[in-house]
């Protein structure tokens, strides 16, 4: 994945809360989706995009890469397709007051930043972006700030996500560096814990 330290791009105001992963990636779309991390841009919010007035369909937001959404973004199903579709569409940053836990956990591995901002700050960004559609927002991961015109806002972002996104780290490779500790743990592990392949009990 491409490391990201600062990012400047066109921001879209998505004035909706509870944007669940079924809205981000409608389940039926999964059936015809490629079984890869890419090729999902068309599926993003596909049902909503059928409405010509939907915000993503407005020409001013063409090429947008920052999404500013309402609270509880990405709740519901664990489907990582939701993140793949956002990334594939071109989004590098989603800003919202609160995220679904599994969704947020899925973002960093795909280089997508999920930054938390207060409801009031999100509202200010929405107003600003609606007044001047197509405006750019500057996101600084080093400082965890968002700049929009003359205004600057802080956003919340856990340190482990920040490190991974800024450095483009492969998390599995990092864990495998500790293979000896995993092996030690396994040696201490209770031997009677169930094994799927062991059906001696019946």
């Amino acid at each position: 994945m491409t490391p990201l330290i600062t990012h400047t791009g066109i921001a879209v105001p998505l004035r909706r809360d509870n944007v669940d992963t079924d809205q981000l990636y409608p389940a039926q779309r999964i059936l015809n989706a490629p079984q890869t991390r890419t090729g999902h841009a068309d599926a993003l919010m596909a049902d909503w995009r059928e409405d010509p007035d939907f915000v993503l369909n407005k020409p001013a937001y063409d090429g947008a890469s920052v999404l500013v959404a309402g609270r509880d973004f990405g709740t519901g199903s664990s489907r990582e397709w939701a993140v793949w579709a956002l990334a594939d569409y071109g989004f590098r940053v989603v800003l919202a007051p609160r995220f679904g836990d599994i969704f947020r956990g899925n973002t960093a591995e795909n280089g997508l930043v999920a930054g938390e901002m207060s409801e009031a700050d999100i509202e200010e960004l929405w107003v600003w972006l609606e007044d001047a559609p197509g405006s750019r927002i500057e996101v600084d991961l080093e400082r965890r700030t968002v700049r929009c015109g003359e205004s600057r806002y802080d956003f919340g972002y856990p340190e482990h996500f920040r490190q991974r996104v800024m450095r483009g780290l492969d998390e599995i490779a990092l864990t495998l560096e500790h293979a000896a500790e995993i092996k030690d743990f396994e040696a201490r592990r209770r031997v009677t814990m169930p094994r799927v392949t062991d059906r001696a009990a019946r």
Binding site: S78, R79, E80, V83, I102, F103, G105, N106, E109, N110, P158, H160, E171, I172, T175, L176, A179, I182, E186
Partner: peptide, 21 residues
């Protein structure tokens, strides 16, 4: 018991562990 994403599935397959807060 908790739900995970596809990248985490890969992590568990490869390491039988998950880094978690």
């Amino acid at each position: 018991a908790f739900g995970i994403g596809t990248s985490q599935v890969e992590h568990v397959l490869a390491t039988q562990t998950l880094p978690m807060t």
